[in-house]
Design a protein around this nucleic acid. Structure first.
Lengths: 248, 248
DNA sequence: CGTTCGTTTGACGATCCTCAAAGTTGGTGG
DNA sequence: CCACCAACTTTGAGGATCGTCAAACGAACG
């Protein structure tokens, strides 16, 4: 995103000093543990827009923590259009779904210039052997992602286009706020088509609903610059009882 | 399910002898580890149909392994209709989404008479401290569930009612096969309404599509008795390129 | 300056939801 | 054992939402 892009190339890889430390995996580690953690961490490497971090079906080796920028995970199913399953922001962990099968479930592609920290998984496991904190952080991360995915399932199966968009915008807003960026005004690093794919809508629908939101005074959009004008109304819309299947 | 219901009340709690051992969490543990595992395991307790195993928002204490029977996870959102996010069959693990927040994300309710093994999580963590196998089994389980949830997200956001139903039936069939039950003929322990909630469809749509599948010779349904007649056709339907959003 | 990619807007139609009512099943109690 | 009740299922009719197709516009990039 625009703001996160301002994070300049980081020479410093000590987690302790990273702006995302408070939201990232090694949170809560003892000093000596943190040192070992820093030691296994591969230097952040820059990804250009459109560059792939991992490829679908490629062998799973590492988790990646986003340091700055943003990425999308896309899943290609045979004969069908690619589907976007996740957007990743700074402080979030990429690759957890690869552990079980030791293959990457989808491709992960940078949406803008992006820095990630690579965490070789076998080394991480070794470290976790002697660190209860790291173990429980790992469990916590995976469990949280399970919750997020389930929330997403609820969104996709029960809500109208308006509600999906409203939830999406509020979700982004909250994630930005948590990262110290403005929750009211931000840059969308993904296209309308990406949003549509993620939310299970046609890109035209995304465009139309956003236009209507603007006409209703809920947001103000100029291309990919988004301003949330009436947050309360968006929230009311997102949580409104009358979605689809509201009967019975 | 009908078949699994035949599993009589189990006095034997040794995992080694459980019919689900090959698909369950303690798979691969050394003999001595397995003994410790058995030791922390709470005796299977029977749940009657409709009885809750855990309640939404209740504090998270344990994981549960399904021994026989089946359950559904339902998530109640404010003002909206409950949504079903998972069905659990024997050998599957309930509660992984509770670890991160130490609260249960949804309620889990038995669909028929069901036996589960309770695994107090703190004890499990203690055990995992000294068992790399158990640790990696835990990661594996969570990671697999992440994948399943993502598959579900793809299903919900990109596919037609027919394709959702076809995938659902095939998915169940595969899970039954893996458990030693007939993949071609099984009993649905969930209602049409449950299926609809899970797949993001109105219950009427579920009923209609199943009727049409029967007319087309794909399946044969009598109430909740399901027979898959033309598995290949179902597969072709489920993987068909032309879902929704197939353009562009 | 032209090409490509992304976005907007319109018209049309299909899918699937809603409402409604009748028909089933299963379980309970008289 | 039967009757009754509740919950579940089926089927129909009508309509809303949202996807598809199409075309024009805008922006970014070489």
């Amino acid at each position: 995103m625009a703001e996160s892009g301002r994070c300049q190339p980081v020479k410093e890889t000590r987690c302790e000093l990273c702006s995302q430390h408070a939201r990232c995996l090694p949170l809560g580690l003892e000093l000596n543990e943190l040192e070992s953690f820093d030691a296994i961490l591969q230097r952040p490497r820059p990804l250009k827009r459109g560059e792939a971090l991992v490829r679908q079906g490629g062998s799973f080796e590492s988790l990646y923590a986003v340091r700055s920028g943003s990425l999308k995970q896309t899943v290609a199913q045979e004969g069908q259009r690619d589907q976007i399953t996740h957007f990743y922001l700074p402080g979030e962990l990429v690759g957890l779904d690869g552990i079980g099968e030791s293959r990457c479930y989808g491709s992960v592609v940078a949406l803008e210039t992006t820095f990630v920290c690579e965490l070789p998984f076998t080394r991480l496991e070794d470290l976790a052997e002697h660190s209860p904190t790291l173990r429980s952080q790992l469990y916590r991360c995976m469990s949280r992602e399970l919750r997020n995915d389930q929330r997403m399932m609820c969104l996709l199966s029960g809500r109208t286009a308006d509600q999906r968009l409203a939830s999406f915008l509020l979700g982004l807003s909250n994630r930005f706020r948590a990262r110290g960026f403005s929750p009211a005004r931000f840059h969308l690093s993904m296209s309308r088509s990406d949003i549509g794919s993620y939310l299970g809508l046609a890109l035209e629908t995304v465009s139309r609903v956003l236009a209507r939101f603007q006409a209703q005074g809920l947001v103000s959009v100029e291309g990919r610059e988004m301003t949330l004008v009436d947050r309360d109304a968006l929230l009311a819309l997102a949580e409104e009882g009358a979605g689809r299947h509201s009967g019975v």
